[in-house]
């Protein structure tokens, strides 16, 4: 299966070594953005070039890879990255969260709790949480250095002043281990609590911006908030229409042009697993019948 004209996992060994160094530094300083010499990848920026490089540097031939895009295993981004590593590394792939040793993700954390030994790799478009508040990179680095994070709260203040609540729903800023403020990549704030004290290693790669950062296992990650406006993870107030789950993050799917819509789990593996074990939502059908149809 492997195309032997490529080195294992596409990148050459020196590049992987350079990336691993950046990863190790990131793990040593949780939440700190480590610069690295990002390579051109055979896919456009914005398609997960940072995540792909981190994954390539972590992969071993024994690994089992899972790739998710907005929770789903079967959308373009997920399928193309999974195929990429199948061709260039020949590793086993899976859609089951529990069976994967490395999970590359775009904008979601799986619903199924991660376990020790797993690596979750995030694709990050903009690693700097202060970017849109302070455009000067020299200044934001200084602010990280001196722990001047008051500005982050100005953003939350503006949210409350304008909308009555903290309206930031994704890429919600967090503080890692009481030190660095970090952009958790555009995951919904529903997923923020899962960042904290996870037994899995979480790595973040931003290809265009050339930054890698990490949250090691069992690290405290706190979402920023105000005393009188505490952080609240939000989701659509529904149950999944396919599997009936009430605790998972939902996608709204428009089904016709008459206002018809349904809410389904954004994590397809989670939804599939529940349906296979007999859970049925309001609009769902048992798995066996669905397969037949």
């Amino acid at each position: 299966m492997t195309e032997h004209s490529y080195n294992f996992a596409y990148l050459d060994e020196q590049t992987k070594r350079m990336i691993r160094r950046a990863i190790l530094k990131g793990v040593a300083v949780p939440g700190y953005q480590v610069p690295f010499a990002s390579r051109e990848m055979p896919m456009p920026y914005g398609w997960g070039t940072g995540g792909v490089q981190v994954t390539a540097a972590c992969l071993t031939p024994d690994d089992t890879l899972k790739v998710i895009d907005q929770g789903a295993d079967d959308t373009t981004n997920a399928v193309s990255i999974r195929k990429f590593f199948q061709r260039t590394a020949g590793v086993a792939v899976t859609e089951a969260t529990t069976e994967a040793s490395i999970i590359q993700t775009r904008h979601r954390i799986p619903e199924t709790a991660l376990s020790a030994g797993q690596i979750l790799v995030y694709q990050v478009p903009i690693p700097e949480p202060l970017r849109f508040l302070e455009p000067r990179e020299t200044e934001t680095r200084k602010m990280h250095e001196l722990e001047e994070y008051g500005l982050m709260h100005v953003k939350l203040y503006e949210d409350i002043a304008r909308h009555g609540t903290i309206a930031t729903a994704y890429a919600y800023p967090v503080k890692v281990e009481g030190r660095y403020v970090m952009d958790p990549s555009p995951i919904p704030k529903f997923d923020n609590p899962k960042l904290s004290n996870s037994p899995a290693l979480q790595l973040f790669g931003a290809g265009r911006e050339q930054r890698i950062y990490a949250v090691p296992p069992f690290t405290t990650v706190v979402s920023l908030d105000f005393d009188d406006h505490p952080f609240q993870p939000t989701k659509a107030p529904h149950d999944c229409d396919l599997c009936g789950a009430s605790e998972s993050y939902l996608d709204e799917v428009i089904t016709d042009d008459q206002g018809g819509r349904m809410f389904v789990c954004s994590d397809t593996d989670f939804c599939q697993t529940r349906r296979a074990s007999g859970h049925i939502g309001a609009l769902g059908v048992p798995v066996s019948e669905g397969d037949a149809a």
């Binding site: 008051g150 500005l151 100005v154």
Partner: peptide
């Protein structure tokens, strides 16, 4: 001034920079 931030946010920035974390008080 921060031109993209409301007047209240501008005045509150220093308070938040020195640890103000109560929206009502800042406002």
């Amino acid at each position: 001034l921060r031109m993209g931030v409301s007047a209240g946010g501008n005045v509150g920035e220093r308070l938040m920079a020195i640890g103000g974390r109560h929206y009502g008080d800042i406002r």
